[in-house]
Amino acid sequence: MRPPGILAALALLGAAAPAWPAARCTGTIYLTFDTGSQSQAELVAATLKRHAIRATFFLANEKTVRGDHALDPSWAPYWKARVAEGHAFGSHTFDHVYYVRDGAGGGIVVKPQFGKEAGQRRAWSAAQYCDEIRRVDTRFHELTGNHLDPFWRAPGGRTSARTIAAARGCGYAHAGWAPAGFSGDELSSSAFPNAVLLKKALDGLRDGDIFMAHMGIWSRRDPWAPANLEPLIAGLEKKGFCFATLREHPGFAGDRPNNVAK
């Protein structure tokens, strides 16, 4: 008969074992979620927790269905809980700033979606662009006591060599997504029904692909996440895929990761 201490240790090891051992994985998918209306924030968190999946969240201070913004103090408990669960976090620019075009003299023309300059085109220097990315880290640390991981995602995936270089200059590598990893959750639900989007993802995703969805989209009549997130995960698990954060992605190794282009 084994001593009680050994039995307890074996029980702990069994409890910690993953539902799908790594040796049996046919590949790895990297689930990522951008902030949005946040209407699906709780559903996303609950679904990931139920499947013991760690994902990567890209944060911007976007207006939410609560009437506040995603990086307001009212969201601190939500983000603290995700930190405790071991998820990864990147910048999505503080005011959800869209790249418009390269400007004169090495500048960058941008258009913030939120904040005091919302809807206005502005000419920024590379340093100003970098500061916008780092604003998210500053607020995230205020809310959670933790810093972001060293990657970011441009709103709409719109980048140029100049924006990529500006971000890398302050330590952030860009993370886009695979063609099959575009969830389509911001498209018209009449033209792109959830069932069509789900099939596209399940048929097309391959080992190493980054998948992108939002935590709620204002304009889509039939939200993507309630219909598709659970069956997407279940379908990928059935194919033998495992999941990881971008911290584990081979393109993001080290303190200054290599760029992963969209």
Rank of each mutant, 00 (worst) to 15 (best):
A154T: 07
A225F: 00
W75L: 12
G169I: 14
P231K: 02
A161H: 12
L246Y: 06
A52H: 15
P155T: 06
D149A: 03
A167S: 14
L205N: 07
K49Q: 15
K49E: 15
A22M: 09
P179E: 02
A118N: 13
P257E: 10
A45P: 08
V44Q: 01
L148H: 01
A88C: 08
H51P: 07
D68N: 13
K116T: 12
A191E: 08
R139P: 01
N61L: 04
L12A: 14
R66M: 13
T28N: 02
A127C: 06
Y172W: 11
I164M: 04
G157D: 08
H87F: 03
R134E: 11
E85I: 00
Q38A: 15
R82I: 00
P21S: 06
L48C: 09
L10N: 13
K238M: 04
P155W: 05
D131K: 15
L229G: 02
I108T: 10
S37V: 12
W20H: 14
Q38M: 15
Q120M: 10
G115V: 04
A16S: 15
A127Q: 11
A173Q: 10
P21L: 08
T93A: 02
D95L: 03
G14C: 10
P179A: 07
L187T: 13
V260Y: 14
I164V: 14
C242G: 13
L197I: 05
A165W: 01
G176R: 12
M215S: 04
